[in-house]
Design a protein around this nucleic acid. Sequence first.
RNA 1: GGAGCUUUAGCCAAGCGGUAAGGCAAGGGACUGCAACUCCCUGAUCCCCGGUUCAAAUCCGGGAGGCUCCUCCA
Length: 444
Amino acid sequence: MKLYNTYTNKIEELKPIKENTVTIYYCGPTVYNYIHIGNARPIIFFDTLKKYLEHKGYKVIMASNFTDINEKILNQSKIEGISEMEVAEKYIKAYMDDVRFLNADDSFLKPRVTETIPEIIDFIDSLVKVGAAYKSGGDVYYRVSSLPEYGRLSNRKTDELIQGARVEVRDEKESGLDFALWKEFHEGIKYDSPWGEGRPGWHTECCVMIHKLFGGMIDIHGGGADLIFPHHENEIAQNESLYHNRIANIWMHNARVNFGQEKMSKSLGNVIWVKDLKCDPRAYRLLLLKSSYRNIVSYTDELQAQTIPELEKIDTAMNKLFLYLDVNDLFNSSIQSLESLDFMKRFDDANEEDMNTPNGVTVINDLVKEINLELRGRKDSDILVSYYNVLKEMLYVYGLNQNLERMSLENRNLYNEWIDARKEKDFSKADELRNKLLSNGVKL
RNA sequence: GGAGCUUUAGCCAAGCGGUAAGGCAAGGGACUGCAACUCCCUGAUCCCCGGUUCAAAUCCGGGAGGCUCCUCCA
């Protein structure tokens, strides 16, 4: 499949390092607060990418980290009056709840900074030894000047960065571009190191975790586009200095979610927490899938409201089809009709093109229409079964699937009575049975 | 000041040189015991001005909006 690579600014063919296996890592949250619907975009996107690759037969190993030690966490612990560890635990749990709420697979690897400290210290130590980093006071900094190609990912030249730098240049750095690998720290959680008591800097953890988990280069490194500079640029720099590679063959970045015309961010305070989403979370997923992951989405309540009937239409078709197969005992067939294979191919073709989910959604809509026509018309069993199998697969890949269960024996009897009552034009009895079925949770 | 992205019907949106997908909303019709669902029909000189080409929403130049990054942020 083709994927847009931020590193080369080109759409490239995905060529897994190890045949039939794709390794993915994307930057996870600093766990000091709940996540908002913009933070949910990488969760949803990479979950979708993973499911698509699995649908195509790849084994996917995906990891996403937790930054569980950080000054924000320390601040939050003071606000909440609990320890840093407790803050981290609380928001990791909340994050995982949100992941499941968003119908994303929660089985990815979840490395934590606090579980990677020895490796991080070794890594920094090695960088010092090769001259790519230096100690200054109790801190250690990466020496950007040691890497001529610094800035490749974000298309920046170091002299321009110096001109544009708005950060105050701190005396302890050789250059304003240098970034901290280790910071002297004497409060809260702290670790002993060759440079004294302190904490690791933010940019080091990801490359160390990747190396620890995967033992070398990975296929895809992802994250929000905001991380391209400086975070990912700095990750690459450190890795280049030590391992002489760029960590991942393909760097993928999802665009942000705005709140209306504004940027949505915790610091601006205009956020919608995932846990506070009013609608079915699948409707939010659909909202995102209807746009390319590389385009900014401007979230409004109106836009969200618009996707709700769209999801309902898909659900309705699926429910009707499921009910029909249930009542007629047609689930056992694994027939794939030519028609359904054509839909599947169109769906795959869309996703092969850098995860063109808007076009994938179009295929789902087209299939939904065909299902409705078939259910209204000839009701060919083979076709209906194969449509079901294909739609189910598509909805699973996009995380729009529901958990449908077959009717109980009791409901099935009620259902048959309902059909009979309608045939006999006993409408009051029919309505009664219908209400009973609906209250029993049967989707008619 | 530097870098980049973006502008397609009321709204979302695809499109990557060959004559504008799809969805939502709206209007009209069909189906239906009621309700819901569903189906059919109706809509765009692709921000503006030049240029290249037999052919441009698509390429080039200029202009005007909108956005982002260069600073913690997915």
